[in-house]
Amino acid sequence: MSTVRRQNLTERIYQQLKQSIFDFQLLPGDRFTESEIAARMQASRTPVREALSRLQREGFVEVSFRSGWQVNPLDFQQFEQLYDVRIVLEMAAVKRLCAMEPAPDLSALERIWLVAAEDRLEHGPTVCSLDERFHEQLVEACGNTEMARIHHDVTERLRIVRRIDFTKRPRIEATYVEHANILRHIIERRSDEAQWLLKSHIEDSKAEVRRITLHMIFQARHQPNNSYPPLQANS
């Protein structure tokens, strides 16, 4: 197998394994071997090992010499600490945005979030990606690259649970309403109110994510066919 082909296969295995973790097809605490994954995905162990090593660096799995690989348990205490970091960074960003001269250009966000109810998107994964970019763009608009880098790292580490917030329609609707309110207050330079709205928005999301995640894990553990389709090595 050529180097390029192996790298492409490794990327595809990595993406599929990561998606399986996100979808709770591979559950927190599940154990497996490289051979089992290679057989399921109809691939050799080398690209599987490379994909798993990448997931390990990102904190999704861990390896043991005696028992193979394991999906890391969800550490809600760590997630709550990461949410707290988000709140600190984003409130600081909002405060700076409200004071900037000239006012920051937030037109790209306005086109997405300041829309009529009938123009709102309903596809959860799409809204999840837009939500992630909403918060990142608020921080990036401040012009502090180090703050943006730290915030991006926190966002990456929270992604496994944050996406859960967009599996229910009421949460999608709430996201549109709350983002619109935050944006309007930033545009009007009402710093204190904008920061309070942002803090409440993130804290509500944090609480809802924990509740839905625990429910989804419970459901997944009681479903008989919790598996994913094989990845063809030559496709």
Rank of each mutant, 00 (worst) to 15 (best):
Q219V: 13
C98M: 13
M147N: 03
D165M: 11
R5C: 09
L52Q: 06
E193F: 07
K95D: 12
H201Y: 15
E132L: 15
E101D: 13
F32R: 14
R189F: 03
V85M: 07
W69S: 05
R96C: 08
S107T: 14
Y83K: 01
R66T: 09
T175N: 10
V48E: 11
S191G: 10
K95L: 10
F79A: 08
M1R: 13
Q16E: 15
L231I: 11
F79M: 10
R66Y: 14
Q7E: 11
E156R: 05
N181A: 06
S107L: 06
L52G: 11
E101T: 14
F32S: 08
P170G: 14
I186F: 02
I21N: 02
H151L: 09
P224A: 13
H179A: 08
N225I: 14
R163Y: 02
I164Y: 01
M1F: 10
E62V: 10
E118V: 11
Q223L: 12
V209N: 09
V85T: 12
V71D: 05
I13N: 06
S205C: 06
R149S: 15
D204W: 08
V127I: 15
A117G: 03
L138G: 11
V177I: 14
L109T: 09
V161Y: 05
Q25R: 15
D84P: 03
N72Y: 03
D75A: 07
E178K: 13
P125D: 01
F22L: 07
S20N: 12
I212S: 03
I37E: 05
K199P: 01
E118A: 13
R96W: 00
T145I: 13
R221T: 11
V88N: 02
A180W: 01
P125K: 01
S20M: 11
R149I: 09
E122H: 08
F22Q: 08
A39L: 01
G68Y: 05
I172F: 04
I202N: 05
E58P: 02
Y83C: 06
Q56E: 08
F218Y: 06
E110F: 00
V85P: 00
F32H: 10
P28N: 00
E193R: 13
Q56T: 05
I87S: 10
A233R: 02
F218L: 01
I182H: 03
E146M: 12
E58L: 14
R86P: 09
L17H: 08
V85D: 08
H152K: 04
R45T: 05
